[in-house]
Design a binder for these strands. Structure first.
Lengths: 329, 329
DNA sequence: CTGAAAGCGCTAACAG
DNA sequence: CTGTTAGCGCTTTCAG
């Protein structure tokens, strides 16, 4: 493995000059530059990034924390973030927290070990106090997530609007016995969405039925479970706002198994507009999140933070959602 | 940001001793160790990984190249690889090549820049000659992929068996007009699978109909497109081996739109046993790949390579596939 | 425009 | 068991 010294020796120049060529500095004569380039080629030289990172005190890597990589929403989000990162000469390090506090903390440590220059969090598992302890080591940007206490920028979707939109749609279709599925923790985002649901209900003079609030709803399997719970109820909801296409898919699939018709017996609204929502039958009414836009915006904010053009504040960037009406409600 | 020197100073010891504590070396008296630990705590010290990487000439990071992160198969595969990596104190760097030669090459460079200690490739875009040029910088392991020319270990599934199994199943169900969908490039893996298809056909005294070979089949959309092509044919296949659950889902969904019955009018076999296959209607007959096992095995081989217990050879580890019979055929 | 020199923060002989 | 010393490979003043 040739080093910069080998290149310098072969080119008959100093390491400083070679370094200048590597980093595209001005003030290197074309002649010497050619010499260096040739030597680099001849030796198959590639700069060692650990050395560069150490010396420059930066890595050009941004950690992107996601709670579940196998959730298409996050897979697409990561893709959009990566795209914007690449455009700006940055690399991303995908960190799959699996909704686990400890794992999240380990990844946040990367900021302190200088393995990454910044962190984008697409979910928050730990309390903000814990996260705050890390932040002075580098910028953090929240994406599709927020915490009331967080004093960092966050780029997110208008979840309140999402909850309101989905619920209103059901109400307009004439459903009044509406159930609600959610993950289980009323973190900022989930809270807003629920608030939107509540608001739409209230405005229609309806109240929320606590028996129809289903938690721990994440996966297709959870959807099936919830549908079975509903089937056993004496007083059943006739519509569900699920907060996730996967959960919605599970509900629809199980409902059909149970001999129920969707949307006649039970209407369903998903969230995300994932590929599955077009393929399932009946096709899913869902709420599309502008994934590309949110990813790009998040990276943009991060880049500004890194270049100190912007300083860390709790600024919120909010993007709109869109309801995609299909057949399930 | 405190450094090792700050810790040493505060503890009244040398940097060497602090380093020993950091790295859990034996031969540090408990008393001094306590002193160091306390100093580290008091300062909030965390070792700088760029410095460690430079000094140790290794990063404990393995790059995992995947062609498409939004494909659930790869998302799950990455998860299983990560799990095994974490168990062994390794970190993975997920690299999304997007089926792009140039991106693949950029990621392979990480091996030369010493950003990673090894590379796991779950697809190959470039010719092997190109890849070979990189390999002396560190170990490469192929996962669910192989190249005839590759002189590195590969952990893969028996695709020939997969192609054979899916086709035989269709034949046993009485279908004889069987079409075949594939990505478009007959790389090792795809070739084996096709060969299995051919073999099953031949054994049944059937020949492959070239009109029913559909290429560029990757996504749900592609499935829809193919189904529409079929609808226009005078002589139509009555069964399809798709090589992908996504494509199969697209085909089924579109077939129903066209008023066709699945499997009566057209039977479909998928590949991967992705979540979608259970939710779509009719549920998809598909071929399950042991993702957990293949990921774990791949990492195991990588770890042996890194520890020099094993040297790089073209050894092949092959895992079996399993047919999951459902309703689509 | 170019080179010499001084580290970035850490680890690993080696000597004691 | 502990400290001294010599770098890992690169970049960046500072002179010239």
């Amino acid at each position: 493995m040739p080093t910069i010294s080998d290149v310098a020796r072969l080119a008959g120049l100093s390491r400083a000059t070679v370094s200048r060529v590597i980093n595209n500095h001005p003030y290197v004569s074309d002649a010497k530059k050619e010499l260096v380039l040739k030597a680099m080629r001849d030796l198959g030289y590639i700069p060692n990034s650990a050395a560069q990172n150490l010396r420059k005190q930066k890595t050009n890597i941004i950690a992107v924390l996601v709670p579940k990589l196998t959730n298409p929403f996050f897979a697409y989000l990561v893709e959009s973030i990566e795209e914007k990162a690449a455009e700006n000469g940055l690399q991303i390090l995908i960190c799959n927290t699996k909704y686990d506090k400890k794992r999240e903390l380990e990844f946040l440590r990367y900021l302190k070990t200088k393995q990454v220059d910044g962190v984008i969090m697409t979910s928050i598992e730990n309390g903000w106090e814990v996260i705050e302890a890390v932040i002075w080591s580098g910028p953090i940007v929240l994406c599709n997530e927020y915490s009331a206490k967080a004093n960092v920028p966050s780029v997110r979707l208008n979840q309140l609007q999402g909850g309101y939109m989905g619920t209103s749609y059901l109400l307009n279709q004439g459903y009044t016995k509406i159930g609600y599925c959610w993950g289980g923790i009323l973190s900022g985002l989930a809270h807003d969405r629920f608030f939107g649901f509540e608001q739409a209900m209230t405005e229609s003079g309806l109240s929320v039925n606590n028996n129809w609030l289903f938690e721990s709803a994440f996966s297709i399997e959870d959807g099936r479970r919830i549908m079975n719970e509903i089937a056993k109820m004496a007083d059943k909801p006739n519509a569900l706002f699920t907060g996730s296409d996967e959960v919605a898919a599970g509900i629809i699939s199980e409902a059909k198994k149970l001999g129920l018709r969707v949307p006649e017996d039970i209407a369903v609204v998903g969230f995300d507009d994932q590929p599955i929502s077009e393929v399932i039958e009946p096709a899913l009414t869902t709420i599309r999140q502008p994934i590309k836009e949110i990813g790009a915006k998040t990276m943009e904010v991060m880049i500004n933070l890194l270049s100190n053009e912007e300083k860390t504040t709790a600024k919120i960037y909010e993007l709109p959602l869109e309801l995609i009406a299909r057949e399930s409600s």
